[in-house]
Design a binder for these strands. Sequence first.
DNA 1: AGTATAAGTTTCTATTTGCAACTTAATTTT
DNA 2: AAAATTAAGTTGCAAATAGAAACTTATACT
Lengths: 171, 171
Amino acid sequence: MGELREPLQQLAECGLPMALEAMGERWSFMILRAAFNGVRHFEEFLSEISIARNILANRLTRLTESGILHRTPCPDDRRKVEYRLTEKGLDLLPTMIALRQWGEKWGTGVLSNPVLVDDRDRQPILPVTIRSHDGRVLGYMDLCWMHSADITPISADMHDIDDRVRKLSAI
Amino acid sequence: MGELREPLQQLAECGLPMALEAMGERWSFMILRAAFNGVRHFEEFLSEISIARNILANRLTRLTESGILHRTPCPDDRRKVEYRLTEKGLDLLPTMIALRQWGEKWGTGVLSNPVLVDDRDRQPILPVTIRSHDGRVLGYMDLCWMHSADITPISADMHDIDDRVRKLSAI
DNA sequence: AGTATAAGTTTCTATTTGCAACTTAATTTT
DNA sequence: AAAATTAAGTTGCAAATAGAAACTTATACT
């Protein structure tokens, strides 16, 4: 039975503190959600989420500084500014969906509507889960910590496994 | 091409605000990480993360109130109190790992060590992703919103598909 | 020229954070 | 049994942050 116990001294050395420095503030995830929903302009964010003007301005510059949003003055209307998600920002989607799904699962029984679906077959997406290298869903007890030096590389099989995962993903 | 654009009026009706109410505060994720690493007592949290005493006390009661931690006085040493993750708390693991992986990917090139592995075969876990009902990895552009009423149930096939996913997960 | 809009700033107040010292109850040590 | 230590908090106070409302600046429309 795996024990998920990270060496305590190294607790500070994972990516979480860095992630929280960028995303840990009160409104960051709400701003991000709006951005994912196509919101791009200051006044649009403002009317979308109930945030104070100055705080929004502050958060937008901070998210821009940390490379999550990209800020461009609009060429067609030079009063306007466009905030767009960068690749780094787009990469937060799994985190956001996972958090949202958790909120939906444990929230006050609010049947969430509308629902996120795969555009291809219009079926709801799966709950976000943790998976082993070969795609098995893993729970808390299936995980443990290892030093990367001690991991047996499966490079020979790698292509093979990638292929199997791809096949799996293409059902 | 799918457009991930949620009806704006309904932005407030997803699980995210609720999730953020419980987990959106400054130290909540760090406390959670410690809890996942087996930390259970007040003084242990205190020496693990650089948080002030009163703030920790406040966060622990709040996380307890929102059902993420469970608080029990220790029977063997009645000075001590045990904080343990509830099922609701354990269910935040995918969110936390996703956020952590993002931090590792986009952080300052810190080769994170140790690494999370599947206890069964000692191989690193996959990046947390969004998947379609049949297990395909989906990106931002593959998603769209639908009213649950408009979704064609696949209950007839359901067992079949579940089966295929299970097979996929068992490679 | 006059009004409206977009994206901020500024000012001022209220809340939250964080440090340091204090408390209370239960254990260990001497 | 008395004294010291430990665990889990509280309290008081200074500093930082959040938030509401009014103000600014540059553009654009009429």
